[in-house]
Write a protein that binds this DNA or RNA. Structure first.
Length: 433
DNA sequence: TCTGGGGTCCTAGGACCC
DNA sequence: TCTGGGGTCCTAGGACCC
């Protein structure tokens, strides 16, 4: 916790629905619900007009329709949401270089890194007001709610207090006065299960939580959560605003309108999802070692199975093959409502080798030739590891840079290997899938 | 026909290594 | 032959967030 109210949390109001109302004037002033359109869909965002009817996020489409049948139900235009989000994030960065997006519609801004004369309450309040005006300007009328306080925790709590289109500043020193009367559920990380555990222990408010010893909370909730909650109950939170956070996993999943029973169909769907995961990984320069499938049975039981490779992949066919083999171990009689595939343990081989001990003093900048399409360039030095075939772009400083490419997914990724890496072998056609 | 999709973090047990 | 402890990696599941 800082001595100044220098962390700002911004939350765009009913974001997806607001973008729809901005782009389609006929929807303005009317209930708009994004999501909940499919047979098993849930509401992603409800406009404030729809919320009056009790429609809210995560509600099933069925229930939302029952409560507000005259609402416009939309499936969502994520390109538009992403584009609008970008404009907002840029407006935040214009205020301070230290911006941490939490999702398309939420971010922290570190005002201590902004160009402000000081961090007095009046100054940050004016900065927040100006930011809200600016967001409205760049988005073509979308409103945001802002909270400003001495920590991430308090800034986020504050931004919940005056929705929509509002702002709350918590003066330093008044944090606990604000928190103590509140329910424990205001604390991020306290969801239904934790709230119920606390309730059974007679703890309903932050003030009651504050009265519990740290040992007691750890006994009740485990080390990490117990310790974390003990601190938050005292408004102790020194987490910094972090601008760049690396992705840790990439996944695709889908819920089907009727339960799946045909294994061949499931394999086909997993294969398609795996290919999409591979495409997304390559687009972002990611590769990963652990492949996980997720299977939700008809009764909502959720299973996962994973397998870790010795070296990372971003190849859809490889991910698909492993995903299908993981599915083979599961009993799916009775039907499957959801299937998913993900890759975690993300690595960046190029980066690892560039910064490895051997390459420390070398500039290993490889100038890449035009990428090949489906065929190897004449005379290319073609190699492979267990994941697929590739050809050598360049080598030097004990590092071999290889472009991986399969016929169905050009252009392929580029990765670097140590020249003596046993994973690197002469090319033989990979086995038929 | 209650219960999305894309993520993050934590726990707990077993394997394995020193 | 009665007996370790710590650290790391992997797997499965669960809580939580937007």
């Amino acid at each position: 916790m800082r001595s100044t109210a220098s962390i700002l949390h911004l939350d765009l109001d009913a974001f997806f629905a607001a973008v729809e109302q901005r782009d389609k004037p006929s929807l303005r002033g009317k209930p708009v619900i994004v999501g909940g359109t499919g047979g098993r869909g849930v509401v992603s965002t409800a406009s404030y007009e729809a919320r009056k009817y009790g429609v809210g996020s995560a509600m099933s489409g069925r229930e939302a329709r029952a409560r507000c049948p005259h609402a416009a139900f939309l499936s969502g235009r994520f390109h538009a949401y992403r584009a609008t989000s970008k404009l907002v994030m840029q407006a935040l960065r214009d205020l301070s270089p230290l911006v941490e997006p939490l999702s398309l519609d939420e971010a922290f801004v570190d005002l201590a890194a902004a160009d402000l004369p000081d961090l007095e309450v009046d100054t940050v309040t004016a900065a927040g007001a100006e930011l809200r005006r600016r967001v409205q300007e760049v988005t073509g009328g979308l409103t945001a709610t802002v909270g400003i306080a001495s920590s991430k925790f308090l800034a986020k709590v504050a931004s919940e207090l005056d929705k929509p289109d509002g702002m709350t500043v918590v003066p330093p020193g008044t944090e606990l006065d604000l928190l103590r009367p509140m329910k424990v559920k205001v604390i991020p990380g306290v969801g239904p299960a934790t709230a119920e555990r606390l309730r059974r222990a007679g703890i309903h408010t932050v003030a009651e939580l504050e009265a519990v010893t740290e040992d007691e909370l750890v006994r009740l909730l485990g080390q990490a959560q117990g310790h974390g909650l003990w601190q938050l109950a005292r408004a102790q939170d020194s987490r910094p605003v972090v601008a760049e956070r690396e992705a840790k996993s990439i996944s695709v999943e889908g819920t089907y309108d009727s339960d799946l029973t045909d294994r061949r169909l499931m394999e086909g769907l997993l294969t398609r999802q795996a290919r999409e995961v591979g495409t997304r990984m390559r687009k972002n320069g990611h590769s990963g070692r652990t492949i996980t499938i997720k299977v939700r049975l008809h009764d909502f039981t959720t299973l996962s199975r994973s397998s870790t490779l010795t070296s990372p992949t971003d190849d859809g066919a490889t991910i698909a093959r492993i995903a299908r083999s993981l599915l083979a171990d599961l009993d799916t009689t009775g039907g499957v409502r959801l299937l998913g595939v993900g890759v975690s343990g993300l690595a960046d081989w190029v980066q690892e080798d560039l910064f490895g001990a051997d390459a420390e003093d070398e500039e290993v900048e490889v100038v890449l030739p035009e990428p090949p399409r489906r065929t190897w360039p004449p005379g290319a030095d073609v190699v492979h590891d267990e994941l697929g075939a590739g050809w050598v772009w360049g080598s030097g400083a004990g590092v071999v840079t290889v472009r991986f490419e399969t016929a169905d997914t050009p252009p392929g990724p580029v990765r670097s290997f140590r020249a003596d890496d046993p994973a690197l072998r002469r090319f033989e056609p990979p086995p038929e899938d």
